[in-house]
């Protein structure tokens, strides 16, 4: 059997915290509590390996971090935003995360998401859909990280593996 276009791996052990607030007013407090700068519109800021802070909407950020750190992060963020109209909630269990890496990782994404990858900056975060389910996407070394909903994790895995079918790369033949 020929090799798949990309390696599809479910990522576990991640914590995720959803933060809703007025990013103009509360940005500095969030940045300090999260340990990362507040990302610009449709961008994601990472510290290299452990944490990432993604822009989800004009009043929503997503903090991704090791699961072990989420309780503390929740508390720190909640404290930092005390007195501010804000919502800090744990959404770690609501998500399914996949890493799509390898030489043709681009092709796998291009088969499933109506997203112009050529226009996705290195630090871009794109919310869209993968086939029939909601998904967000950003670049990681060697490919992409894709987050969807926990309940459709099996579906996500199946469509990703299907799209990575050996010798089905998109290059013109």
């Amino acid at each position: 059997m020929a090799e798949a276009l990309a390696h599809i791996a479910r990522v576990t052990g991640l914590g995720m915290v959803s933060i809703r607030a007025d990013l103009q007013r509360a940005g500095d407090a969030i940045a300090e509590a999260a340990g990362l700068a507040v990302p610009g519109m449709t961008r994601i800021v990472t510290d290299g390996s452990r944490r990432a802070l993604g822009w989800m909407s004009p009043d929503e950020l997503l903090l991704v971090l090791p699961a072990a750190e989420r309780a503390e992060a929740l508390a720190t963020l909640t404290d930092a935003l005390a007195g501010e109209h804000a919502l800090v909630v744990d959404v770690s269990d609501a998500r399914a995360v996949f890493d799509v890496t390898g030489r043709h990782a681009d092709d796998v994404i291009r088969k499933l998401m109506p997203v112009d990858l050529d226009e996705l900056p290195p630090d871009g975060l794109r919310r869209s859909r993968a086939a029939q389910t909601a998904a967000a996407l950003w670049r990681i070394p060697g490919g992409f990280r894709l987050i969807g909903f926990r309940s459709t994790a099996d579906y996500l895995r199946m469509i990703l593996e299907n799209a990575a079918f050996p010798r089905s790369q998109l290059a013109a033949r």
């Binding site: 519109m41 109506p114 859909r129």
Partner: peptide, 11 residues
Amino acid sequence: PYCGVKAEETE
């Protein structure tokens, strides 16, 4: 107009 994404109708 909120996120600048050029979205297609299915999104």
